[in-house]
């Protein structure tokens, strides 16, 4: 465990900031889990729940932002403390965006008709589960300051992109073949897949922030280095 600050008030606020972020991540993780389930269940109450949780996420983001400003103004953090505040601000922004995407995809998922191609639903669901696992992993790496885990989850994004592209290809092919159940839904499935892919991107951004928080450097953006 790290040494504690001589300034107890400052110590307390930094702890609060981490607690706020943990709380915020828990809400977003739950939101994503529910949204991904809705792809299969089409449960409209669950979809509504992602909407309600989104309001909590917005409040949580504001709390993180206000506390970060307070810490910067009153305590002028440096070194590891400064990196934590900086990371908190950026991570909370990414989480907030993830929340928006989960809410949107849940809303679209319930409007897809039950006659829609099962295989495609399965494919979206699987993409969703993988995104969810990536998000859990990256947040875990943040709170445990686990650089290796952050890098592993950062690499997972390439897999998610591949899965997303193959899903799109599948969708488009079926539209070309004029499969009615697919054509009738229009762009909805594409937008759902896109939301999932975007959540993965935000998780990647968090992984980069986590690595910065730990090492003080941003990861080399050339993915090939890690593949």
């Amino acid at each position: 465990m790290e040494n504690t600050h001589t300034d107890k008030n400052f110590e307390q606020k930094l702890k609060q900031l981490q607690d706020d972020l943990i709380k915020m991540s828990e809400i977003v993780e739950k939101q994503i889990e529910i949204a991904v389930n809705v792809i299969k269940t089409k449960d409209s109450q669950d979809a509504q729940l992602t909407q309600n949780l989104d309001e909590q996420v917005d409040v949580a983001e504001r709390d993180v932002r206000d506390l970060s400003f307070e810490i910067m103004t009153l305590h002028r953090p440096v070194a590891s403390d400064l990196r934590l505040v900086f990371t908190a601000l950026k991570v909370s922004k990414e989480l907030e965006r993830m929340g928006d995407h989960s809410r949107n995809l849940a809303k679209r998922a319930i409007s897809i008709s039950s006659s829609f191609d099962d295989e495609l639903i399965e494919q979206m669901y699987s993409l969703g589960r993988n995104v969810q696992s990536m998000v859990n992993q990256v947040l875990d790496s943040f709170f445990k300051k686990d650089e290796l885990k952050a890098k592993t989850s950062w690499n997972q994004d390439a897999e998610i992109d591949k899965e997303y592209k193959s899903l799109l290809k599948n969708l488009i092919e079926r539209m070309h073949n004029k499969e009615t159940s697919v054509v009738d839904e229009g762009t909805k499935p594409i937008l759902i897949a896109k939301s999932l892919e975007r959540i993965g991107d935000h998780a990647t951004n968090i992984a980069e922030e986590v690595i910065f928080n730990i090492t003080g450097h941003y990861i080399d953006l050339k993915k090939s280095d890690f593949e």
Partner: peptide, 11 residues
């Protein structure tokens, strides 16, 4: 040690 000192932590 440097981090602890400049961030005002007990060394």
């Amino acid at each position: 040690q440097t981090n602890d000192y400049i961030t005002g932590r007990f060394g």
